[in-house]
Design a binder for these strands. Structure first.
Lengths: 81, 81
DNA sequence: GTTCCTTTTGCGGCATAGCGTAAATAAAAG
DNA sequence: CTTTTATTTACGCTATGCCGCAAAAGGAAC
């Protein structure tokens, strides 16, 4: 899974793929975050107007965290081994 | 540098540290992003209401990108070598 | 002290996120 | 196919981001 993101579209895609990998629906995320399903939908579809708080809530629900890395920076160890 | 972030405060801190490491001012970022200095300030101080577009613009100006990784996930290769 | 640069805070304004609710599509299951 | 579930879109609403602009506060150097 490539979870590198420089755009809202890439973040939305990564969140949707992670959610599906967990076997969850947008409704499940909604229940865990108190965000509306419509808000999750908008985020997954790449709305750059989404608030940081919303992104972080969904990330937390999915068990994800951010790493801020240099563009073209070090590879993740799992990309090698 | 630990650039792992789960909160707006951690993202703001990481952005500020990266900016300083580049020897730049908030005004420099402002010029590169067309965001106000006040907006950069707010973001660096951990305002979770900041829009994703704003975060991404500052990240791009700093030459950074996101990686979405599992909490407690794989280490960055530079943490080993 | 003063000067200079940087960061933070405040104001009025416009644009829009996220809310509740609901309906309309889309996709999956039977 | 029909039924069920999932996702998207729309309405009116309140809250707030970001804007320009400005002033205040903080920090470093002299």
């Amino acid at each position: 899974m490539n979870l590198t993101a420089r755009t809202a579209e890439q973040i939305g895609e990564a969140l949707r793929r992670t959610r599906k990998a967990r076997g969850w629906t947008q409704s499940d995320i909604s229940a865990r975050t108190n965000l509306r399903v419509a808000t999750i939908s908008s985020l997954e579809n790449g709305d750059a107007g989404t608030k940081l708080a919303t992104v972080l809530a969904v990330m937390a629900a999915l068990g994800l965290e951010f790493r801020l890395v240099e563009r073209g920076g070090s590879l993740d160890i799992e990309d090698i081994f």
